[in-house]
Amino acid sequence: MTNKPLYLQIKSFIDTKIESGHWPVGHKITTELELTEQFNVSRMTVNKAIRDLVSEGKLIRKPRLGTFVCSPTEKAESPLLDINNISQEVRARGQVYKNTVLSQIQTHADETTATRLGIMLNSKVFYSEIIHYADDKPIQLEVRWVNIHSVPDYLTQDFSKKTPNQYLSETCPLTAIEHTVEAIIPDEKIKETLQLSSTEPCLLLNRRTWSKDRLISFALLYHPGSKYKLSSKVLLD
């Protein structure tokens, strides 16, 4: 006799059917009403189990049609309240990391860049644009502006060997970060770069970093919405 909560028993039952292949991808699972009768529980309990599996990407609800087994999509995950080196994240998942440097130049700050970096309009600023891959699949487009007075050797770095995140962390130890996350409709350039379908959303992380009292860099980090997620863990007293 199991001591598991009833919704977990139902979830385990469905999960076993999926993992064993008895319910393959595309299969319409037993209805909520039938599961309610089979396990002698409330509809709410069955609904909770199915909601959890939908959230985990194992099931998909189709209005007026039912609930179906879907192909699991593994999502890369990064901490929202910290900064990890993306190359280490990819390798920690057992995947092969590589990147392509699209741009690494000196330019002048427009109004938006000047505001975000806290510098004068038209000031010189370093700019880089890099695609990060996991197993040859693009998982992040990194667009970054860097304060040239704080990091004067930024343009001389080989970012195919050491990511900007790693280099900046070593050169200017991090003391503060600012994150803003939003879902956006990507433009054609981002769709092409990240190999997005015409309807796939994009997850954009806006990040500013400080070392002591110096604002070091501002970055826009674009991720495929179907392949990436951000998480956080807060310890409460």
Rank of each mutant, 00 (worst) to 15 (best):
T2I: 15
Q9M: 10
Q9E: 06
I10V: 13
K11T: 00
E19S: 12
H22T: 09
V25Q: 03
V25G: 05
G26K: 01
G26E: 02
G26V: 03
H27V: 15
K28H: 03
T31M: 09
T36S: 12
R43A: 12
M44R: 10
I50Q: 00
I50S: 01
V54Q: 04
S55P: 02
E56V: 03
P63Y: 02
F68R: 01
C70M: 14
K75H: 07
E77T: 14
D82L: 00
D82R: 04
S87H: 14
E89R: 12
E89C: 04
V96C: 11
V96F: 12
K98S: 13
K98L: 05
N99I: 08
S103C: 09
Q104G: 05
T107Q: 15
D110L: 00
T115E: 14
R116E: 15
L117R: 15
G118L: 05
I119N: 12
I119V: 14
M120F: 09
K124D: 14
K124N: 14
F126Q: 13
I131Q: 05
H132Y: 09
P138R: 00
L141I: 05
E142P: 06
V143E: 10
W145V: 02
N147T: 05
L155Q: 11
L155S: 07
D158V: 01
K162T: 13
K162V: 03
K162Y: 06
N165C: 02
Q166P: 07
L168C: 03
T171S: 10
C172W: 05
C172P: 11
C172E: 13
L174E: 15
T175L: 05
T175N: 11
I177A: 07
I177N: 12
T180S: 13
P186N: 04
D187G: 12
E188P: 10
I190G: 08
E192I: 02
L194T: 11
L196M: 04
S197P: 14
C202I: 06
L205Y: 02
T209P: 06
S211A: 09
D213C: 03
R214W: 02
R214G: 00
S217L: 00
L220A: 04
L221V: 07
P224G: 06
K227N: 11
K229I: 12
S231E: 11
K233S: 11
L236E: 06
L236R: 05
